[in-house]
Amino acid sequence: MLDHALEGGFAQAPQQAAAGFRAALSALARPGRIETIEGATGPAPMSVAAATLVLTLVDAETPIYLGAGHDSPAVRQWIAFHTGAPIVPAARAHEAMFALGHWEDLMPLGQFFHGTAEYPDRSATLIVEVEAHAPPTHHLTGPGIEISAEMRLPSGIDARRDMAFPLGVDFYFSAGHHISALPRSTRVEDL
């Protein structure tokens, strides 16, 4: 095992995971809002935000899918050591509860589990690494948004999202020390 796989975890797991969760909660409850999230450092190309989100939410009960850009021995060993999460083979992406990668590496979205009509909560959560959270590209409406909000999203996301609420996947977008989130309940239009 590479030495650096042992590093970059939480120094104070309960407190840092709690802070990470509150950032994740606030971002998901208010789509478009950018939250600071930090505390963990994973091997490149993982951002601090993505690494912290992984340590906050992922464990041995939640298989994770790695996009091609993130599927390296260093990332695999870091996730294995810090979370114990099984890493699903690319051909079985539908078994993943989390996915981590660049937008294009996670396509098509249909390969991830979208939940069932009776259990829509069993769907995957995608952690998408992006370059930046600004400037905004899309206009948002829906739960968590008082009137309207704006957000930077990968181009073509509205065509690729399968809008069959309550089924769907939920997104976190990570860049540097910041995350934003797009739950399945949000309606998206180009600005």
């Binding site: 995971a17 998901l28 909560d121 968590g144």
Partner: peptide, 14 residues
């Protein structure tokens, strides 16, 4: 706590 947090986040999404 992680298990409860994941449930809360799915609850927020739906």
């Amino acid at each position: 706590k992680r298990m409860i947090r994941r449930a809360i986040l799915k609850g927020i999404a739906i």
